[in-house]
Design a protein around this nucleic acid. Structure first.
Lengths: 350, 350
DNA sequence: TTTTTCTGTGGGAACGGTCCCATTTTTTTG
DNA sequence: CAAAAAAATGGGACCGTTCCCACAGAAAAA
């Protein structure tokens, strides 16, 4: 079965020249006479020649393609990081293959193997909430495929990464709740496996400590980021003898799901309970009331990760394997205050 | 520079057998003696052998990979279609490569070439709002790469596609507005290039006609799906001598952006103006008031498209090129009524 | 036993490019 | 104008895998 794709050999035969010359003409090698080059390019265009990237990557051991692995893409966070990555990578002449894990560790492992089997030149990763074993990542490193992590970063791997200061951002968010007079601040934390969870919780704890608010373990729950659990835990919080007057949620979907529970119970936001989320998803400004949250520079995160990966790729070509501390870039966050934490006076002004 | 990847030749050398046998053992060919197979598999595992998909695809002319091209993925619509596609394709042993066009025609063309250069076996597509030229799609067909379209379908290509009944859904949505007593129903339509735009507008027109509401051209505007334009057009509508008392928007982001304008002007939804969107994006239930919209079975759309593509791939293998009308599958929609169109009495009941 | 049919294995072409190393042709130089 | 240098081209190895063909040895059928 003859393939329907034109090859350089087809072109060479038609012009009665060698495939080497055709190859040179097509890749822009200087040593080709102008008329020859012109003839090749014209024939290639008319035959709709399309280079075979498989053959190319196979032969050159480099594919000009990078992978990006994200745990999910139903919130706007990861898609917009991806857009940032594509931005930089495409400008640098790389293709970007997107993999989505549905928060499943298994998918993560198989997607990683997939990317490696396609010999991508590098990978940008944010791991799933289930990931506790990082062997598939070290495998990539052993294969000489540079990795750059963002957002969800393994804490025992020396690997370049771009993050925000989760600790500081959480600290500020909680201080904001304290500033509007809240004393019983609950925290819905994420799974222990994520660094973010631990850093944000520490920020929460330290903010309380700074303002002499005793830490109440009953008001902190770690959960698995599923909407059903938010409902259960939130009901639990609200049914306490002395329920919380504020909630700091690990992320916006959590905060929004929590808001539903609060509203269903007939309580008012922020009067009865003020709520703060994290990441400034697109929906944060849509919910009613508007959700106060920590904005992350998503597109910048993607762009920065891409630039770091380009650095790594360049270093690799130069065989620069100096073993030094992998770089960590921290990008700034910004607390966006909306109605979900607006004290009375301010609300009236609107 | 020796590659760091293990090859079947490395394995063959170590075991002192031929690479053919190694290949057979690894692919599960029956004609391999049990001890040989075991030895190969064990050594492969210990050397962390990973098949080179480039070499494989290159040699076999089939990559077991399909592409999916979506115009954007900041709304929840396309991501959730993608999840449906991955679901089916992965179960069938295919890999899925995701491409995102940022609504740019140029990206669409270059992504198409990219996918073809990687020799994907098939492609699932929803084209961008800018796409008016479909040569890059027919190119794929000429190359023998089957296409399946969904949602945004070119109307002059005989190609399998999965859609919803946009006409009918729009008709129902507008009838609903009429049922709650609205007479001056505006319509923010999408770009002319999309079939959806035309079908939904026709549904709108016919619903008006059926209920003897004269068509007022001043109340219908086509636009390019950018938020800024929604603002301009919506302001224009509201500033009319007799402004509309209802809006049927081409999609949810449009409806939501329109709501902002209405609220900013101090008008009430639905009392002053009732609003209906399309697609039931995740945000439709979050906005205040909740947005009435036409729900599309997104995951099913993805699954169905994937199944159709699998059909095509099977047909291709069997060389079944019977030229018949390409199948169109229409999936059901459902009008979801929320507060943005709830008449007074019903609202009080809550 | 002899012939035929399996079974298991090895050898090598093929896939479509790149790239190094001739070799030929053209240009420059002494 | 011959020799040297540069430019343009051709030849063929190579990349990792599959798969067809050949063939040896074993098992089954005659």
């Amino acid at each position: 079965m003859k393939s329907k794709y034109t090859t350089i050999i087809d072109i060479a035969r038609q012009l009665n020249i060698s495939k080497s010359t055709v190859s040179r003409a097509l890749t822009g090698h200087p040593n080709v006479k102008e008329p020859t080059r012109k003839a090749v390019l014209e024939l290639a265009a008319s035959m709709e020649y399309q280079r075979n990237s498989l053959a190319l990557g196979f032969s050159k051991h480099t594919t000009n393609t990078i992978g990006i692995m994200v745990p999910e893409f139903m919130s706007t966070y990861f898609p917009s990081v991806i857009v940032g990555v594509q931005d930089v990578m495409q400008a640098a002449g790389y293709n970007v293959v997107i993999c989505q894990q549905n928060e499943s560790y298994e998918s993560e492992v198989s997607n990683m193997k997939l990317l490696l089997s396609y010999r991508v030149d590098g990978i940008i990763v944010s791991h799933t909430k289930e990931t506790r074993n990082f062997d598939h990542f070290t495998l990539a490193q052993r294969r000489g495929v540079p990795l750059v992590f963002f957002n969800r970063v393994p804490d025992d791997m020396n690997v370049p990464n771009v993050v925000v200061n989760d600790y500081e951002a959480a600290f500020q968010a909680v201080e904001h709740l304290i500033a509007i007079g809240r004393k019983r601040i609950a925290h819905l934390a994420g799974p222990e496996s994520l660094v973010n969870t631990r850093l944000r919780r520490q920020g929460y704890l330290d903010a309380l400590k700074k303002h002499n608010i005793p830490y109440n373990p009953d008001l902190v729950l770690s959960y698995d980021l599923t909407t059903e659990k938010v409902k259960i835990y939130m009901k639990h919080f609200l049914d306490l003898a002395t329920p919380p007057d504020a909630l700091f949620a690990i992320n916006d979907p959590t905060a929004i799901a929590a808001m539903e529970v609060v509203k269903a119970k007939g309580l008012r936001i922020p009067e009865d309970i003020a709520i703060v989320g994290f990441s400034n998803d697109f929906s944060a400004q849509l919910v009613y009331p508007g959700l106060t949250t920590v904005a992350q520079p998503t597109a910048d995160i993607g762009r920065t990760a891409a630039e770091m990966l380009l650095q790594e790729l360049k270093a690799k070509v130069k065989n620069d394997y100096s073993i030094k501390k992998a770089p960590t870039v921290q990008l700034p966050t910004k607390l966006i205050i909306r109605e979900s934490t607006m004290v009375k006076e301010k609300m009236k002004k609107r």
